[in-house]
Amino acid sequence: MRIALYQPDIAGNVGAILRLAACMGVGVDVIEPTGFTWNDRKLARAGMDYADAVEVTRHVDWTAFAAQARGRIVLLTTSGAVPLPEAMFRDDDILLLGSEGAGVPAPVHDRADLRVRVPMRAGFRSLNIGISCAIVLGEAMRQRGWPVADDR
């Protein structure tokens, strides 16, 4: 399983997702351009020393990412057709999150093999992408038998 970030805008969110990925043992794809420089100190601060423990692959654009993507693309979206409790995940899923400001464009939305939304109370638009990522990744890993070695 992997996490893919489509043109993320906020370095701190990416850093937090890198930390999540390190702790859960999943790789991260970053689809550029980003709204910050890769060496932004906010990225380093949010990722802490965990970021070095993540397999990160940067892609120059959506076309480059899509050409090498192996597995089912699962888009996390507020307009998703499948509520999270009904979604069934696979080991090769790529959890795709759009940019904080714009989400993903229609061609990317249409390319997704599965569109999932996190149900929430009426009147609220969306969650932070890091929070959404953690909720969906946690459910996906729970379904797959939580494939993380707890070596404490």
Rank of each mutant, 00 (worst) to 15 (best):
D61S: 04
I73M: 08
A106V: 08
A106Q: 14
A53V: 01
L95T: 00
V30G: 00
M88E: 14
V108P: 01
P85C: 13
E55S: 13
H59N: 03
V104I: 04
A134H: 04
Q68Y: 03
V82D: 07
E86Q: 13
E86P: 04
V104C: 00
G103T: 02
L95G: 01
I131D: 06
T63C: 07
V82G: 03
R58Q: 10
A87G: 05
V54L: 15
E86K: 09
V136T: 05
V136W: 03
L75M: 08
P107A: 15
E139L: 11
A106E: 14
P105D: 08
P105K: 10
L95H: 04
A87F: 08
E86H: 10
T37F: 15
G35L: 14
D92R: 07
G80M: 12
L76S: 01
A140K: 00
N128C: 14
V30M: 05
P105F: 14
M88K: 08
D49C: 15
E32Y: 08
R125I: 13
A102E: 11
F124W: 12
L75D: 01
L96D: 03
G103R: 02
G35W: 09
D29M: 03
V82N: 02
R142D: 05
A67S: 11
L84M: 13
V56T: 03
W62H: 02
D91Q: 11
T78K: 03
D49L: 15
D92C: 10
N128Q: 12
L95N: 03
V54G: 02
R111G: 03
W62I: 00
W62T: 02
D61N: 10
A81F: 06
F65Y: 15
D40E: 09
Q68F: 08
A87L: 12
R58V: 14
